[in-house]
Amino acid sequence: MFEARLIQGSVLKKMIDAIKDIVTDINLDCSSTGISVQAMDSGHVCLVLIELGSDGFEPYRCDRNITLGLGLKALSVVVRCANNDDSITIKAQEGTDNINFVFESPNGEKTSQFEIKLMDIDSEHLGIPDTEYDSVVKMPSHEFQRICRDMSQLGDSIVVACTKDGIQFSASGDMGSGKINLRQSSLVDKEEDQINIELNDPVHLTFALRYLNYFTKATPLSPTVTLSLKAESPLCVTYPIGDFGSMKFFLAPKIDD
């Protein structure tokens, strides 16, 4: 038996909105410690990794490790039927080919139940090692969204460069070019408005803006985002989910041949 109740059902809605343009099917890997999802886009350019600890759910019950394959289209249709302040309970019995969703309003007056057929999704599982990054930049998520949106008006690619002077985003195309520089904040009122730049080594990488713009669909999940960069390695864009999980996007850099 698997059962997990998320008090803030809106978090699940936001997670699905964040990935539905990148992946079509996902496996929910459920264990006693929580739920994880690993999925690649059809072109194998990026990888999505969602990790949700069991402490984010009340109750959480997972008697045996179970993998639940779901089509995102169906999942998206179902969670859209939940109100933002509803709790969402996910239930699956061993040996059945369905997953159940129960939505409950805060006062308990309205409950809704939906069922989705499980799918058998064949996906390769990759090991994501702990990496020592050259630079780790934490910034307001809406700022990153704005930069990606603005730069995509100029070109298809963005160059991200971290130096002791800060982080620079640049793009160029037929129309012209643009550069945006961010420096580490000195004094800000709210921690979420802070720009924090950790630099071990200067780093300079190029990425496809199309994918970064997909990733910024996760902006409603968190006021902050972290960009982890390493030479000739995938960029890791991390959105924390409350204090119990995260959504990470890995994007392979573009390489000059």
Partner: peptide, 14 residues
């Protein structure tokens, strides 16, 4: 020429 590498080539399969 700018090339986009396959993301799975960066991580080991398990």
């Amino acid at each position: 020429l700018i090339r986009q590498r396959d993301i799975s080539s960066f991580f080991p399969e398990i």
